[in-house]
Design a binder for these strands. Structure first.
Lengths: 225, 225
DNA sequence: ACAGCAATCTGACGGACCGTCAGGTGTCGC
DNA sequence: GCGACACCTGACGGTCCGTCAGATTGCTGT
């Protein structure tokens, strides 16, 4: 994002002092979202936290949604670094090494931005076009890279042609996403972080590349009806 | 659930007329949740929709949360029927048939209850103990059945011993859950429902049972470091 | 140093919703 | 047709929302 000009709620381009204020408001919003949860977020409190009047908040955002949207957008930018991990091919011997790295990076990203991403996903699923667009922008790149891998695996006969590559890529992302949500539950059950990461990396490889290191035997392949 | 006695907000057991009112309030809550989204839910509106005073609402629920919790709980009860689909073994030739049935049933369930389940999951992830408990109750059975299948597959050498069964079961559920979320996006891309279901069924089988029907060749198995 | 001016901020207010309480209405047994 | 209990509601104080007219800040040129 080549620094787009920052604008106020009325569309006017804003100066340096105003940008700092806007920044403080966004930071406070993020902090309070994490602290109080999506339903406990109050613009009076955001203002108080920022030593500003509620009216100031509305100078930069038409409502809380818009501030949240801006935060979601910022979180989305971080994904480029993760996408880079998808560049190397996974079909070699060190496929698992690559998969593991991706899982670790993705989980860390998701963890770091959990509050805003949870909210973004809820709103996107409630069919709010703006949040859906942000999510879309974030995942489009990763999905397309994953699909390429799936297509390669299909061509190599590691995955059935009947599979829809987009659906497989979606499933791969889903596994990683949910790992983060379930993590507290896992930990409560005494499953350690590393073991989970390793398992998801194996599944990811199995899902996207169709290969699965470490089996005792190779499964007999059956035929679909 | 052997019909537990229905109680008002103050804990008093309530009669038949009151139960009908409570029911109407819950139905209106569910309808408005679907219609207006989680953040647009207002108890004034629930009351209006039910031809009741807001005060009546508070006779049965201490706040909206509690009504939502009751709805989440009801949705959870439906899962028993789905769990039944996990009884047959998937390791035979018709494993895919079973997997497909599960995916279809689960997706339909999730679709039917999308609004309340989305909310439940958000609140559970925000670490609200009550919602977490409801989600837990719903998934515990299915997770445990899936884990059993995974353990069988591990013993048969279809899946690596290094995998954590609980994490695999979680990933399986995640794939199915997310299929529902991504569905509109899939459809926008022209992927049809059936193809998605089939793909997820195949992935599910590959994930939980370690077998994958319809590959041209079987993957060479490598060894984990 | 300081007037003039645009950018930025705010106090104060009408309106919506929340959650409570005292008291009103329905309904059942007799 | 009347008590008694179950159920319901009008009305109110309190909090937050979102807006507007006017105050404050700090830059610009002289």
């Amino acid at each position: 994002m080549p620094d787009t000009e920052v604008v106020a709620a009325d569309g006017r381009v804003i100066g340096e002092r105003a940008q700092r204020t806007r920044r403080r408001l966004l930071d406070a919003t993020a902090r309070l979202l994490e602290e109080r949860g999506a339903f406990g977020l109050r613009v009076v409190e955001i203002s108080r936290e920022t030593d500003a009047s509620p009216a100031t908040f509305y100078q930069y955002f038409t409502d809380v949604e818009e501030a949240l949207l801006a935060l979601a957008d910022e979180a989305t930018d971080e994904l480029d670094a993760i996408r880079a991990l998808l560049v190397p091919s996974w079909s070699g011997d060190d496929g698992l090494v690559h998969a593991r790295k991706l899982v670790e990076a993705f989980v860390a990203y998701r963890q770091r931005n959990r509050a805003i991403l949870r909210l973004r996903d809820l709103r996107a699923e409630e069919d709010d076009g703006r949040f859906r667009a942000v999510r879309q922008r974030g995942y489009a790149g990763m999905m397309s890279d994953l699909m390429t891998k799936v297509d390669v695996a299909k061509a190599a006969g590691h995955l059935p042609m009947a599979m829809n590559s987009y659906a497989v890529a979606g499933a791969a992302v889903a596994m990683m996403e949910r790992l983060v949500s379930y993590q507290p539950e896992f930990e409560r059950r005494g499953v350690d972080r590393e073991s989970m990461t390793e398992t998801i990396a194996l599944l990811l490889l199995n899902t996207v590349d169709g290969t699965l290191p470490g089996r005792e035997h190779v499964a007999r392949s059956a035929t679909a009806p």
